[in-house]
Every structure is written in C-alpha cells, then in structure tokens.
C-alpha cells in the first residue's frame, strides 16, 4: 500500500494537467501561457497537457483581475476540478488586481474567492516563470493528497464599503 502511495505521489508530480481560465485578463498572460506550451519552452517535458474541460485538470491557471461577471464562473470551475487540485495565479492581476485596483467592475484579488497555491507575478510573467510556477504547483499537488485547502471566508458588503471609504479622500 505504501508503494502505491509513493507511485501515486510521483505520478501526480509528473503529470499536471492544466485548465486555463481567463478572469477578465487583457490577453497578455494568456499569450504567455500559450508560449510556454510552444516549441521554445515546451511544457510537455514536465508532463503538462492543456485540457479542454476543468474536470480533466489538476491545476487551474487563472489570469486577469477577477471581474464581477466571472466570480460565479470561477467558483463553478473550481468546484468542477477533481481533487487533488491546485490553483496558480498567473500575472500581477489575480494577485493584486494590478492597475485595476479599486475599479468598480473588479472584484479581485483572486484569493478572496478561491484558495491560491502559487503566485506568478509579472505583467505579463515570462514563460519560464510560468513553467516554474506550474512545477511548484505540481509539487504541492503531490504532497497535498486529497485534502483540499479550505475556501476563503465570503466577503460581506460592509467590509468592501469600509475599504473603499478608507481610500477615498
């Protein structure tokens, strides 16, 4: 049984399948994700496969500052990924909402809605940085087993009001 667990751990690290989700991104990071799959960087060496369905994926790659429109979609997609799963926030937008901070159409950063494991900063990040982030996420996947991290506390309207009030002069 121990041997099986070791094999499973090793296989999880060697075969991270991605699902790429655009949460209001400007397409810069999306292009870099595609670049990391193309011949120059070739993510398939790590066993990476870009999947069409979130149900097939292990790692959810999210780009963009999380607009109001896509909050529900992000939660749905996250719940559709089978465990064990990891989330990689690609670019500065999902980490901090970047230049869109305090925009009324943005409901970021990403970790207000789903637990994030790896942040890959940059605007956009280089493909090598994205690959490193995916490799780190695969390591986390292998160690995590079937215990998924808890969902973040839902943000109430009152707290949002107060933060915006602080910023305004």
């Amino acid at each position: 049984m121990k041997l099986w667990d070791k094999l499973m751990c090793y296989s999880r690290r060697r075969s991270p399948w991605l699902f790429h989700m655009n949460a209001g991104s400007c397409n810069g990071c999306d292009i870099e994700i595609i670049a990391s799959l193309t011949p120059r960087y070739d993510a398939e060496q790590l066993g990476v496969r870009l999947e069409g369905s979130p149900r097939h994926a292990d790692i959810l790659c999210v780009t963009g500052p999380v607009t109001h429109n896509c909050v529900k979609a992000i939660k749905t997609v996250y719940s559709q990924v089978g465990g064990p799963k990891a989330v990689v926030a690609i670019g500065s937008c999902p980490a901090s909402t970047n230049v869109f901070i305090d925009s009324r159409t943005v409901d970021g950063p990403l970790d207000r809605h789903i637990p994030v494991d790896v942040y890959v900063p940059g605007c956009p990040p280089r493909p090598d940085a994205i690959l490193q982030g995916i490799a780190k996420a695969a390591d986390i996947l292998a160690k995590r087993g079937n215990n998924n991290p808890p969902m973040p506390e839902p943000v109430t309207e009152a707290t949002t009001e107060s933060t915006t009030a602080e910023v305004q002069p």
Partner: peptide, 27 residues
C-alpha cells in the same frame, strides 16, 4: 513533439497519467 521541434513527454508519461487519473476524485 519531435516533428514540431519540441522535446516531448518523458517515457512512461501515459502510465503516469493513468495512475494519476485513478487517484483523482470525481466532482
């Protein structure tokens, strides 16, 4: 992969994929 000028997946990749999928939960 080789014909596209890439290195491609390591040997036994489909085996790892199979084992990993066996251990995943179904939503």
């Amino acid at each position: 992969a080789l014909m596209q000028g890439r290195v491609g997946p390591p040997f036994m990749q489909p085996f790892f994929d199979f084992i990993k999928l066996l251990g995943k939960t179904t939503p």
